[in-house]
Amino acid sequence: MDETGKELVLALYDYQEKSPREVTMKKGDILTLLNSTNKDWWKVEVKITVNGKTYERQGAVPAAYVKKL
């Protein structure tokens, strides 16, 4: 869990989004888990830093590609 009490997951593999509802992640990324009720796809929040600014993006990733921490 992070400092706000939200559950975290670890990306076990790289994943490139294939639709606007998904998010890209790299192996080793730590993501915030938002919903894991679907056994195949979990909704997560990814933090992306671009030019020193951090953005948050929500989307789905394959459940088999992440592990709860």
Rank of each mutant, 00 (worst) to 15 (best):
D2W: 13
D2L: 14
D2A: 14
E3S: 13
E3I: 14
E3K: 14
G5T: 13
G5Y: 12
K6W: 09
K6R: 14
E7L: 10
L8F: 14
L8H: 08
L8Y: 15
L10N: 02
L10G: 01
L10R: 09
Y13K: 12
Y13D: 06
Y13G: 04
D14L: 05
D14I: 05
D14T: 05
D14K: 03
Y15K: 00
Y15W: 09
Y15E: 01
Y15P: 02
E17H: 08
K18E: 07
S19D: 10
S19G: 12
S19Y: 04
P20W: 09
P20I: 09
P20S: 11
R21F: 14
R21H: 14
R21S: 13
V23I: 14
V23Q: 01
V23D: 02
T24P: 06
T24W: 04
T24V: 03
M25G: 00
M25D: 00
M25L: 08
M25E: 02
K26Q: 08
K26P: 01
K26L: 07
K27C: 07
K27Q: 09
K27W: 04
K27Y: 04
K27G: 03
G28K: 02
I30S: 01
I30N: 00
I30F: 04
L31N: 00
T32P: 13
T32C: 11
L33R: 01
L33C: 05
L33D: 00
L33P: 00
L34Y: 02
L34R: 03
L34H: 02
L34Q: 01
L34F: 04
N35E: 15
N35F: 05
S36C: 14
T37W: 08
N38G: 10
N38M: 07
N38H: 11
K39I: 09
K39Q: 10
K39N: 11
K39Y: 07
D40Y: 15
D40C: 14
W41D: 00
W42F: 05
W42M: 02
K43F: 15
K43V: 15
K43A: 10
E45Q: 12
V46H: 07
K47S: 12
K47L: 12
I48F: 11
T49I: 12
V50A: 09
V50R: 10
N51G: 11
N51K: 08
N51S: 08
G52D: 06
G52H: 05
G52S: 05
K53C: 13
K53G: 07
K53T: 11
T54M: 09
E56P: 13
E56S: 15
R57E: 01
R57M: 07
R57S: 04
Q58T: 11
G59E: 01
G59T: 01
A60G: 07
A60I: 15
V61Q: 00
V61P: 03
P62S: 03
A63Q: 03
A63W: 04
A63Y: 04
A64M: 10
A64W: 09
Y65I: 06
L69S: 01
L69Y: 08
